[in-house]
Simulated assay, not measured.
Amino acid sequence: MSVPLYQAKAEFFRMLGHPVRIRVLELLQDGPMPVRDLLTRIEIEPSGLSQQLAVLRRSGIVTATRDGSTVVYALTGGDVSELLQAARRILTEMLTGQNELLNELREAEVISK
């Protein structure tokens, strides 16, 4: 039995729904990175990072390759970068709209005094 597309999309977005996973994906946009570098850039315990990397790896959104004792992670494709950029644009639009509303509320407060 196949999963409806909307359900598969919901699962995909749930998989992305963790701040550490998003941060890892943002960092990997610049290219492959060893775990030790990810640990330096993300303030998290090694076991926590390992858990989040495993989720990303299982989903197929990142790959892991071993170079001696070093494990290097990379994005599987450029679409992830495009998705993160789209999210940034959407958030910018949302926050701009909220800022405009906040300004209107402040102006209305000044007028009513």
Rank of each mutant, 00 (worst) to 15 (best):
V110Q: 02
G17L: 00
T76A: 04
A64S: 15
G68Q: 01
V71E: 06
T63M: 06
R66D: 02
M15G: 05
M94T: 04
L28D: 02
L56C: 12
Q7R: 06
L75F: 04
E100K: 05
S2F: 15
K113S: 01
S47L: 10
G48K: 09
L53T: 05
G60S: 11
R23G: 02
T76L: 03
G97N: 13
T76Y: 00
L28Y: 00
F12T: 11
L16K: 00
D79H: 14
E104W: 07
N103Q: 12
I42F: 14
L53V: 05
V72P: 05
R106K: 08
T76N: 08
K113W: 06
E82I: 11
G78E: 10
V24N: 00
V62M: 03
Y73T: 04
A87H: 09
E93R: 14
I22M: 05
A54H: 09
R89G: 14
P46C: 05
V72K: 01
E82K: 14
R21L: 11
G97W: 01
F13S: 12
T96A: 15
G60R: 14
L27G: 04
V71D: 01
S2V: 15
T96C: 03
L105W: 05
E109C: 07
M15A: 13
H18M: 03
E26F: 09
A8Q: 08
S69L: 11
A87W: 03
L95S: 07
S59H: 03
P34E: 06
L75Q: 04
Q98G: 02
M1A: 15
Y73S: 08
E104T: 02
S112N: 02
A10M: 11
E107P: 03
L53A: 03
E107I: 02
R58S: 12
E100S: 12
E93C: 12
V80Q: 02
V35K: 07
E11R: 15
V3L: 13
G31T: 07
P46R: 08
I61P: 00
Q52H: 14
S81G: 13
I22P: 00
D79K: 08
I61F: 04
P46W: 12
A74V: 11
L95P: 00
V55E: 05
T76H: 05
R41S: 12
G31C: 04
S112P: 04
L84C: 08
M94I: 14
R88K: 13
L5R: 09
T96W: 08
G97A: 07
L84R: 05
M1F: 13
E11D: 12
V35Q: 06
R88C: 07
A8S: 09
I42S: 03
D30S: 11
T92P: 01
T76I: 06
S2Q: 15
Y73W: 07
D67N: 10
E11I: 15
I61C: 00
G78A: 08
Q85T: 11
M33V: 10
G60Q: 06
V35G: 01
R66M: 10
A54I: 06
L38Q: 05
G97Q: 12
I90T: 14
A108M: 01
E100C: 05
V72T: 14
S50I: 07
G77Q: 09
V24K: 10
L39Q: 02
V55Q: 02
A8Y: 08
E82P: 03
F12N: 12
R14C: 06
S50E: 06
E26A: 03
P4I: 04
L27E: 10
A54C: 11
I22W: 00
S59D: 12
H18R: 03
A54W: 06
V80P: 00
R23L: 09
L16N: 00
